[in-house]
Design a protein around this nucleic acid. Structure first.
Lengths: 187, 187
DNA sequence: ACACTCATGTAACAGGTTACATGATTAC
DNA sequence: GTAATCATGTAACCTGTTACATGAGTGT
């Protein structure tokens, strides 16, 4: 049920169309939650008929018209209620770990290329996160001015989580590569 | 489709019943893949009818009889084929990150208890992993004896991944707690 | 008696994935 | 012309979750 809430949070941060939400789920929110446009349109339709969100037709020039969604009272209440409920520390799913343990019954060295591919994907994502952090949270001339901005600081701490995750993964994949190298032919 | 492969790997490591597999998915394999017994029985039935695995009725005394599954030729081939295919670096799903960004529109400080609960769950898991590592990979009198054992070393590197993940999470949750504390009432 | 472990399942439903479909505008 | 972006959807299917169901044996 958390896709509903992820969409509500995104719409609170900024109202937008299903298409725009789908794009956000490829970027910022996509760092910790994925969803395709098909899923998003389905959930938007349900939340609209439940009165959680409002729609507004927005005519555009040079582009197709769009429907802009924003969070209504009941949607906000639903989000609040969910925030108050405890959630279980999430279950993990690492295909790569299954492959690594499975490689013991095949050719471990054959997995090296695959692990390297994943390592590249993670270094790319790390670079992307770090660029985003510098852009959005670089605060060049903003030392001690005013009260903390919750939205901004909470977005930043989530991004720091993504950065920590990518760094951890890169270090671990290096460990995996070193381990696999011990099983290469001729050794 | 990777539950199939996770089960195949587990059965290659050691043949067993659906019930035993379900228990393994709460422990060792469960570190990186979760599955309930209902899912497992469904997949076992399908893999058996596809000839990927063999069944053997094992009568037991003092306990109900069980069906012991083991991997057959076609199952091994299917696993090999899957190991050779590239997989996409996995998509993440962090309910807690959704909550943290959502807290900006509610009461950020109200999330502290929840984050502390998660932190406790992760320190517990870390302790559990470390105990397992000491037990299974402590190698007290085993410095340079013989060739590397692929199954054992690959299980160990996957476990090290779990340990790195829990350590990263604990450090990040501390960061989150420090951030949330800035929004507490009276500050 | 009651709860727990071992052991195997069915059924209904919710959620996620993949494929297909349409149509306008902009850039090369 | 061809591809890419913007924009919204339907349909079929596969996976995962939750609830229900049964039944023997062990421990308190």
């Amino acid at each position: 049920m958390a896709l509903d809430h992820a969409i509500l949070v995104s719409l609170l941060e900024k109202p937008g169309s299903g298409y725009e939400l789908a794009r956000r789920f490829e970027r910022s929110i996509g760092y910790f939650w994925t969803a395709t446009h098909q899923q998003i349109y389905r959930v938007l339709k349900r939340m609209e008929s439940d009165g959680w969100i409002d729609v507004r037709d927005v005519p555009q020039q040079g582009r197709p018209d769009k429907k802009e969604y924003s969070v209504a009272g009941p949607g906000r209440d639903a989000l609040s209620a969910w925030l108050g409920e405890p959630i279980e520390p999430e279950s993990v799913r690492h295909d790569l770990a299954v492959k690594i343990r499975g490689a013991a019954f095949d050719d471990p060295a054959a997995l090296i290329g695959e692990v390297e591919r994943h390592r590249r994907a993670h270094t790319d994502r790390l670079a992307h996160y770090l660029a985003g952090e510098a852009r959005d949270f670089g605060e060049p001339g903003r030392p001690f001015d005013g009260p903390p901005d919750a939205e901004r600081e909470l977005q930043h701490v989530v991004l720091r989580g993504g950065i920590a995750y990518e760094r951890m993964m890169i270090a671990w994949l290096d460990d995996v590569l070193a381990t696999l190298a011990r099983f290469e032919a001729g050794h």
